[in-house]
């Protein structure tokens, strides 16, 4: 493990497996009469949330507390970065408070990278803008492995607003590392133009990929995308890219349906699908705590001379000549 968890793309196969295996053990411990562990006693975890996300914050908070870490919730929401204290000044404050880890949720892509330059502790990305949400991808992979017994060779179809989805990005990189085959399904407007460079397949025809899917992951689609002309209407979006009972019937019998939440019932997923036996949506929430415990343990459970998930945040320009200097 690296000192930080900022991007699923930074995880090696061994790192990813180690997190999933650790989460597996921790999930079993959660069933004991006393689920609390003394492991991170004396360590301080700060939840630094610039965006409202009660579910993610609670999940991290529960994970840290089960490991006996001290948790400080620092809600920076509303202190709009432009007028409030700068991220750097906040980072220096957290540094002074002796934060061993900062879990950051931020509406700006790359904010965790910046934070990692200004704090000495570990930085855990709890979702940054439209970039990544690595613990979500880890809990998704964990859920798939628990339900289907494997990840390698698994056919995973991710449907929805790929362009703006940090969940999709993290899942594409992580699942690729873990040997799954990912297919993205979206209207072309909601795919990055450089989608061809990602390690996945792309389809515009949802129904045609369902019979060959072991997992279907539905992403939340936001209404405001309609105003920005990404698609004509919610009705048309649902018809072409929503998952309803008829479409679900095209899946193989063992296939599961996932959603990172919060759902727009009736838009990307119908209620009967969300509540069906194939749906893992409730499990995903429970698994989130175990996966986040695993991440916190692997980042904070050791000492210096540390583990090494491979250095600093990805892409730190190495001197003397960083990538991108056309010399």
């Amino acid at each position: 493990m690296n000192r930080h968890l900022i991007s699923a793309a930074d995880l090696s196969l061994a790192d990813a497996i180690s997190i999933l295996d650790t989460a597996e053990e921790l999930a079993r411990l959660a069933e004991r009469p006393i689920p609390k562990l003394p492991t991170l006693r004396g360590r301080t975890v700060v939840n630094l949330f610039y965006e409202d996300s009660t579910r993610t914050r609670i999940s991290f908070e529960a994970a840290a507390k089960r490991l006996s870490a001290d948790v400080i919730n620092f809600s920076a929401k509303g202190s709009s970065v432009a007028k409030g204290e700068s991220l750097k000044d906040t980072a220096l404050t957290l540094q002074a408070m002796g934060a061993d880890a900062v879990v950051i949720r931020h509406n700006a892509s790359g904010a965790p990278h910046r934070l990692a330059e200004w704090v000495r502790g570990s930085v855990v990305n709890a979702g940054d803008g439209t970039h990544e949400h690595p613990t979500q991808a880890l809990l998704d992979a964990f859920t798939m492995r628990r339900r289907l017994g494997r990840l390698s060779g698994l056919r995973v179809t991710i449907v929805g607003d790929i362009l703006h989805s940090r969940v999709a990005r993290s899942n594409v990189w992580l699942l690729h590392t873990l040997g799954a085959q990912v297919t993205l399904v979206a209207p072309p407007t909601l795919l990055p133009v450089a989608i061809g460079t990602w390690p996945c397949a792309v389809s515009y025809d949802f129904s045609s990929v369902l019979p060959a899917s072991d997992v279907v992951m539905m992403l939340r689609v936001q209404h405001e995308r309609m105003a920005q002309a990404y698609f004509p209407s919610v009705r048309e979006y649902s018809r072409r890219y929503g998952l309803d009972g008829d479409r679900m019937a095209l899946l193989p019998p063992h296939a599961i349906v996932m959603h990172p939440g919060p759902m727009n019932r009736g838009v990307e997923i119908t209620a009967d699908v969300a509540d069906s036996a194939r749906s893992t949506i409730v499990e995903q929430v429970a698994n989130g705590v175990a996966v986040r415990m695993a991440v916190l343990y692997l980042l904070l459970g050791g000492g210096p001379g540390g583990p090494g998930m491979a250095g600093g945040p990805a892409g730190q320009a190495a001197m003397p000549e960083p990538a991108g200097v056309a010399l």
Binding site: E25, L67, Y297, L299, G301, G302, G303, G306
Partner: peptide, 15 residues
Amino acid sequence: LYRDDLRLRPARALG
């Protein structure tokens, strides 16, 4: 997870 020497070494894999 109960060891008293966790900080002396990198995080260990769980048994």
